[in-house]
Design a protein around this nucleic acid. Structure first.
Lengths: 191, 191
DNA sequence: GTCTATATGCCGATAGAC
DNA sequence: GTCTATCGGCATATAGAC
């Protein structure tokens, strides 16, 4: 998992991590397919070959982004799958999910994934993994027995929590206010 | 706009239209960047050069998909911008928007757009146009003066109408039932 | 760990025959 | 309207020196 033994740059971040950061940014802005390894390398001031020392392929860069962050999501899913399917569980889930998105950087990953859905297909291993987890999340809130409107509402509850960060940008809204709005709307959708 | 004078294939659809259909399908499934003109041509049993007789570039194929369908959306926006910003207008908007998505094929275009967000950037002319229209749609339902939770709720109302078609698939749900669920949830979000 | 140099292949796009 | 043939370019990926 972790790899402590690594040479560090002046800014205290090793090259592997710098590659991941730049790749995530460019993949999200321009798209996975539209971003070349040459572009990533140039941004970092190294050559393509240096990238291949740290990652065996372009796809492996993406995989590394997710595997480094997937653990917390799996914790939440494990918790949810051990709870009774009650209103109280759904409420608690909304809060925990909002927490999850606010801590660490899973939100940047979500955005990357959302904007690169076509690249993250079944062929892409990271894509398959994330899709499976999203299915499990939805499964925590509703079952196929529920009436359609209710299933739709509960899917939207999850979307509300991410979407809040993209819809509520301007003007001068604090992270706390955005989170409060997300939770309020999501809660109303799981009632 | 229309181009009646065109040779037709045995199945009654001219080549230009067949190119558009296959392109939309492949762009949506695999992604715009990941789909080559060679692939589209092979699927149709022609060569790349034939594609270039009908469209000047890959991007022009995408543009043609939207320009052929944008008129109805513009009608809805024009109607909405001429109405008072009342609850009754929002309700009527939800119904009209659901109508719009059910008639014709704008839904397939929405799916294509949603799954190829990174390719449909500002540089891409079709992308800029659609983004502008989506902004106008959101503007019909809410203003920046509204409190955050309300703005989020109204953005979700629009999403509910599309999302219904992707979330509510199995098992044996009719178009009418799906539409009813979408409208019900969207209405509750614009109250 | 990073470099130079290169292999190999597909891409979008065009020219010109039929 | 569709074809064959081709251009120039950039892609991912690798070999091997330092």
């Amino acid at each position: 998992m972790a790899r402590p033994p690594a040479a560090e740059q002046p800014d205290g971040v090793d090259t592997r991590t710098r590659i991941q950061r730049v790749a995530l940014e460019l993949f999200t802005e321009q798209g996975y397919e539209a971003t070349s390894l040459r572009e990533i390398a140039e941004r970092l001031g190294v050559t393509k070959a240096a990238l291949y020392y740290h990652f065996r392929s372009k796809e492996e860069i993406v995989q590394s982004l997710f595997t480094d962050q997937l653990a917390k999501l799996d914790e939440l899913i494990a918790w949810g799958e051990g709870q009774p399917r009650t209103l109280e569980t759904r409420r608690e889930f909304v809060h925990r999910y909002a927490d999850l998105l606010q801590s660490g950087r899973p939100l940047e990953l979500m955005r990357f994934f959302e904007r690169n859905q076509t690249s993250m297909q079944e062929k892409h291993q990271a894509g398959a993994t994330i899709r499976e987890r999203i299915g499990r999340l939805q499964g925590l809130l509703s079952t196929t027995d529920d009436p359609p409107a209710e299933r739709l509402r509960r899917s939207l509850a999850i979307m509300a929590v991410h979407t809040a960060w993209f819809v509520l940008r301007e003007p001068d809204i604090s992270d706390e206010a955005r989170r409060a709005a997300a939770v309020e709307v999501a809660l109303s959708l799981v009632e």
